[in-house]
Protein backbone atom coordinates (compact mmCIF):
# COMPACT_ATOMS: atom_id res chain seq x y z
CA UNK A 1 0.00 0.00 0.00
CA UNK A 2 1.31 3.43 -0.96
CA UNK A 3 2.52 5.67 1.85
CA UNK A 4 0.96 8.96 0.79
CA UNK A 5 1.40 10.46 4.28
CA UNK A 6 5.16 10.22 3.94
CA UNK A 7 5.07 11.73 0.48
CA UNK A 8 2.87 14.61 1.66
CA UNK A 9 5.04 15.26 4.74
CA UNK A 10 8.17 15.30 2.61
CA UNK A 11 6.56 17.69 0.11
CA UNK A 12 5.37 19.93 2.95
CA UNK A 13 8.97 20.24 4.14
CA UNK A 14 9.99 21.01 0.56
CA UNK A 15 12.35 18.05 0.46
CA UNK A 16 13.06 15.90 -2.56
CA UNK A 17 13.42 12.14 -2.23
CA UNK A 18 17.16 12.64 -2.64
CA UNK A 19 17.27 15.21 0.19
CA UNK A 20 15.36 12.96 2.57
CA UNK A 21 17.47 9.97 1.57
CA UNK A 22 20.68 11.87 2.27
CA UNK A 23 19.34 13.08 5.61
CA UNK A 24 18.48 9.60 6.89
CA UNK A 25 21.43 7.83 5.25
CA UNK A 26 19.81 5.64 2.61
CA UNK A 27 19.56 5.71 -1.17
CA UNK A 28 16.87 7.60 -3.07
CA UNK A 29 15.46 4.29 -4.33
CA UNK A 30 14.73 3.20 -0.77
CA UNK A 31 12.68 6.33 -0.06
CA UNK A 32 10.90 5.85 -3.40
CA UNK A 33 10.12 2.24 -2.54
CA UNK A 34 8.83 3.14 0.94
CA UNK A 35 6.52 5.77 -0.58
CA UNK A 36 5.38 3.30 -3.25
CA UNK A 37 4.71 0.69 -0.56
CA UNK A 38 7.24 -1.75 -2.01
CA UNK A 39 9.57 -1.86 0.99
CA UNK A 40 8.94 -2.18 4.72
CA UNK A 41 11.58 -0.08 6.49
CA UNK A 42 13.09 -1.07 9.83
CA UNK A 43 11.91 0.75 12.95
CA UNK A 44 15.29 2.46 13.10
CA UNK A 45 14.80 3.91 9.61
CA UNK A 46 11.17 4.88 10.37
CA UNK A 47 12.33 6.84 13.42
CA UNK A 48 15.07 8.55 11.42
CA UNK A 49 12.52 9.60 8.77
CA UNK A 50 10.09 10.83 11.43
CA UNK A 51 12.78 12.90 13.16
CA UNK A 52 13.89 14.43 9.86
CA UNK A 53 10.32 15.37 8.90
CA UNK A 54 9.33 16.44 12.44
CA UNK A 55 6.47 13.94 12.63
CA UNK A 56 5.58 10.99 14.83
CA UNK A 57 5.51 7.32 13.83
CA UNK A 58 1.71 7.37 14.08
CA UNK A 59 1.41 10.36 11.78
CA UNK A 60 3.58 8.81 9.07
CA UNK A 61 3.25 5.05 9.32
CA UNK A 62 0.00 4.17 11.10
CA UNK A 63 -2.72 2.82 8.80
CA UNK A 64 -6.29 3.71 9.81
Amino acid sequence: MKNLKLKAARAAKDLSQQDLAAAVGVTRQTIGMIEAGNYNPSLQLCIAICKTLGMTLDQLFWEE
Binding site: G25, V26, T27, Q29, T30, M33, Y39, P41, S42, Q44, L45
Partner: peptide, 10 residues
Protein backbone atom coordinates in the same frame (compact mmCIF):
# COMPACT_ATOMS: atom_id res chain seq x y z
CA UNK B 1 31.29 11.36 1.00
CA UNK B 2 29.55 10.36 4.24
CA UNK B 3 29.67 6.62 4.87
CA UNK B 4 26.23 5.09 5.23
CA UNK B 5 24.68 1.72 4.67
CA UNK B 6 21.28 1.53 3.10
CA UNK B 7 19.47 -1.26 4.96
CA UNK B 8 17.53 -2.33 1.84
CA UNK B 9 20.72 -2.55 -0.23
CA UNK B 10 22.49 -4.37 2.63
Amino acid sequence: QPQFKDERVE
